[in-house]
Simulated scan of single mutants.
Amino acid sequence: MAPADAPLRDLLEALTKRIVEHPDEVSVEQFEEGDGTVVLELAVGDDDYGRVIGRGGRTASALRTVVKAAAVREKKRVLVDIVD
Rank of each mutant, 00 (worst) to 15 (best):
R9S: 11
V26A: 07
E25P: 05
V38D: 02
T16Y: 04
R18V: 11
G36M: 10
I19S: 01
E29A: 13
S27I: 03
E33P: 06
R18L: 13
T16I: 09
S27V: 10
E32N: 14
F31N: 14
I19L: 15
T16M: 04
A43G: 09
A43V: 03
A43Q: 05
G34F: 11
V26Q: 02
E25Q: 14
E21F: 12
V20Q: 02
E32L: 13
G34K: 15
R18E: 14
E13Q: 12
K17Y: 09
L42T: 05
A43Y: 02
L11G: 07
T16C: 10
F31L: 15
D35N: 13
E29M: 09
L40Q: 04
E33M: 14
D10M: 13
R18G: 15
T37Q: 07
V20I: 08
R18H: 14
E21P: 03
V44S: 03
V28N: 05
E13L: 14
L11I: 03
T16R: 03
L11R: 06
L15P: 06
L12Q: 04
E41P: 04
I19N: 00
V26C: 06
V44C: 04
D24L: 08
V28C: 04
L11M: 05
E41T: 05
T16H: 06
V38P: 04
E13A: 14
V20Y: 00
V20L: 05
L15I: 14
T37H: 04
D24M: 09
V44E: 02
A14W: 10
V38W: 03
L15W: 08
E41V: 10
I19A: 05
R18I: 02
R18K: 11
L15G: 06
H22R: 15
D10G: 07
L42G: 01
P23M: 12
T16P: 05
Q30D: 11
Q30A: 15
A14D: 11
D35Q: 10
L40E: 00
H22N: 12
S27C: 09
L42D: 03
K17G: 02
V26L: 08
K17F: 11
I19T: 04
L40V: 03
I19F: 04
L15C: 06
V38M: 07
R9C: 12
Q30M: 15
T16D: 07
D10I: 13
L11H: 08
S27T: 06
L42S: 00
P23L: 12
P23N: 11
A14Y: 13
D10F: 11
E13D: 14
L40I: 07
D10T: 12
V38E: 04
E41A: 09
V26R: 03
V26K: 05
E21A: 14
V38Q: 05
V44F: 01
E32K: 15
P23G: 03
K17V: 07
D24T: 08
V28A: 08
E25F: 11
V44M: 01
T37V: 10
